[in-house]
């Protein structure tokens, strides 16, 4: 594992398994009250070139809770790019104002480019359809917190598996820990064949299924649900039919077994019935809340506040 101090966090592809362990265990320490004030006297720039309320608030909460201060903008309308300044020039300028910067941008590769011109660590908070590494870190931390381990779990991943960057990153991460996986999606939104052949090459055990009930025999530890977006379907009726079959309720949980834990990166629309919220199976709000200690840990590590 290379040291985290001064490091850019751009893509899961740059992370080793020991790196992921370091982030997860540090997040656990932060949540248990260790590393208080790890961002004291640190200033973090929060540059959101596209809106993302949940991720932005989670990062900003992480900074404030750790004793740091945060500035930035929540949409590109308030940035100098509106005046025609290049992205690289914006980053070169802001790098002199802060100790680390968090960037979300609709263009794929924007965070990588920022990391090349910035002199402070850059954390990618989502670059188009490419990467959103901190979502995967908080997912891993939530799994670790719930099961006490990351290794050899059985996980079902359901929803839009074709376009969802969250599920691609999670699949990659869980494959590093020997997970057995089932990919549940409508035929038009299946996991890309390149990812499936990568998994085969690595010897990962996986299968595909059309409904969560098809995986009932697996005794899944986790069912990770993602949203199926209406805009992926040309025909609204087709969307309605597909979405209806991908709704998790108490009956789904009964068929998967009471051991299953339901995760979701949120926002949820109607793919998980509200009746699930108060069951011990639902851990998606804990998962969202875990974004804060995970991001505290990460910011502390890259700024040197945590060793």
């Amino acid at each position: 594992m290379s040291s985290f101090k001064g490091r850019n966090i751009i893509s899961l592809r740059d992370m080793t398994t020991p790196d992921l362990w370091k982030i997860v265990t540090t997040a656990e320490e932060v949540k248990s009250g260790k590393h208080r004030g790890c961002l004291l006297d640190k200033t973090i720039a929060s540059l959101f070139f596209e809106p993302s309320t949940r991720t932005r608030l989670s990062f900003e909460s992480a900074v404030v809770k750790s004793g740091g201060s945060v500035f930035g903008f929540a949409d590109p309308g308030s940035s100098s790019q509106k005046k025609g300044e290049s992205f690289s020039d914006s980053i070169r300028t802001v790098t002199g104002y802060c100790d680390a910067m968090v960037i979300r941008h609709p263009v794929e590769g924007a965070a990588r480019l920022a990391s090349e011109v910035a002199s402070v660590p850059v954390i990618n908070a989502g670059d188009g359809a490419n990467q959103h590494p901190t979502q995967t870190f908080l997912d891993l931390f939530t799994i670790y917190e719930e099961f006490g381990r990351l290794e050899n779990l059985k996980i079902g991943i359901m929803g839009d598996l074709k376009y969802g960057r969250t599920v691609h990153s999670l699949t990659h991460a869980m494959s590093l820990f020997g997970a057995e996986m089932v990919f549940i999606s409508p035929p038009s939104l299946e996991m890309p064949s390149t990812i499936l052949s990568d998994l085969s090459d690595k010897g990962v055990h996986f299968r595909t299924a059309k409904t969560p009930e098809d995986a009932a025999d697996m005794n899944l530890d986790i069912l990770y649900v993602t949203r199926i977006q209406k805009e992926r379907f040309g025909d609204p009726l087709e969307y309605k039919n597909v979405a209806h079959g991908y709704r998790i309720d108490r009956n789904t949980i009964a068929s998967l077994g009471e051991q299953v834990r339901i995760m979701h990166p949120l926002p949820r629309i109607d793919e998980i019935a509200e009746e699930v919220d108060n069951t011990p199976n639902a851990i998606y709000f804990t998962q969202a809340h875990n974004g804060v200690p995970t991001r505290q840990a990460l910011l502390g590590l890259v700024t040197g506040g945590i060793n």
Binding site: R13, E108, G109, R112, L113, E116, D127, N130
Partner: peptide, 27 residues
Amino acid sequence: ATNKLGAHRHFELEDKNTMTYRCQYCE
């Protein structure tokens, strides 16, 4: 980012047999 933000084009070899390369920005 190479097409939208002026990042310099950079690819690394992914698989010699299939002659495929990975963009170092959008991946």
